[in-house]
Design a binder for these strands. Structure first.
Lengths: 189, 189
DNA sequence: GACCGGTAGCTAATGAGATTAGCTTCAAAG
DNA sequence: CTTTGAAGCTAATCTCATTAGCTACCGGTC
């Protein structure tokens, strides 16, 4: 397969994620990735197009992982139970990898179908979970946006240390889930 | 006061915000600010400590502006009305300046009392608005977190182009506000 | 078992930016 | 008119990203 060392685009992305997790998304550099790979910086260009392209691949990987995480959390559950599981899984992922939050907020560039499609995948899981509530297309979209906004906002603020106070963060999240479940239930009637 | 040209730390921050608004937070550089100021890059060091310090000042300015915006929206209103006004003002600010969203997600560094205090200011507005609901301290914190998380999440995803679908975004936000108002009302009983 | 093409990886060179050091000059205080 | 301090400048250094062109190894072919 790979002639010399075992470096591939995927392997480079994996190393990049290690850098992101360790030092933050803003600190991602080809130099750091190359060091981890045990390779000179320019060699990375044989696998990824450059720093911008690497960032995009990192975003893609994170979105894909999140989609899988959510899919896993949703399968085997339904209704309110599934909504809460989704919320918990989303938050848990960003607690484990706080620096990856930026990847979930990046808008795909114009014409980047692949990333747009991947982002869509996250929404599709929510769509599936909301199906039993019997919303029409538009209402499903509105409910999905609210669900995602609330959960993402919470996880995002938590990941960036926005909750300075000592009060129990789990309790706050439980309240958020309650509000969402009730809000969606009410919206269905 | 200022011997030569009219450059001050505040003026530098204002120029930096112009760069952020135009090109995005990631594109902020001393070189670009210096160009706008009509000055050589190293001259900026007479006013701000460096790029990192400038970023912090930008965050500080944005947080302060947001606090003022929210305070303005809340005064003269109370109850559910005030909550919706707060949500609308938060969203409106980030619609006007989408690239400033990052400033609201930055965690203050260890020991940065000033920025921590400024961030606190945003929460205080929410606290004031929630007072009439009669929550105790802990419940007020939980409700504030949920309110902030939901609204910030929505505005953040909107600012970064996360809502790809054609369905009306205003309608989605209205749903979010409804959920929040009802959720907080229920939480009070 | 020697030969060949393709590709991973390398070194050298260029260029943008941040940052530091040290010089110069205006403008206000006396 | 002089002094002085801060504002601005140029020169130099460092880190990175990126490009160009070279080298050498691996897998497959005679």
């Amino acid at each position: 397969m790979s002639p010399r060392a075992g470096l591939t685009p995927d392997a480079v992305v994996t190393l990049a994620l290690e850098v992101v997790d360790a030092d933050g998304a803003g600190a991602l550099s080809l130099a750091k990735v190359a060091e981890r790979a045990g390779v000179a910086t320019p060699s990375l260009y044989k696998h990824v197009g450059g720093l911008a392209a690497l960032r995009r691949l990192v975003d893609l990987r994170v979105v894909a992982e999140m989609t899988e995480t959510l899919r896993g959390a949703a399968t085997g559950r339904s209704g309110d139970d599934a909504i809460e599981a989704l919320a918990d899984a989303y938050r848990a992922y960003l607690r484990t990898h706080p620096h990856r939050v930026a990847a979930l907020e990046t808008a795909p560039d114009e014409g980047d179908e692949e990333l747009a499609k991947a982002t869509h995948g996250v929404a599709e899981v929510a769509f599936a979970v909301l199906r039993p509530y019997g919303f029409d297309q538009a209402k499903t979209v509105h409910a999905t946006r609210c669900l995602r906004a609330a959960v993402h906002g919470f996880a995002s603020l938590e990941a960036s240390g926005g909750f300075g106070r000592p009060e129990d963060v789990d309790a706050s999240f439980t309240l958020l889930k309650t509000m969402l479940v009730r809000g969606i239930t009410d919206y269905a009637s």
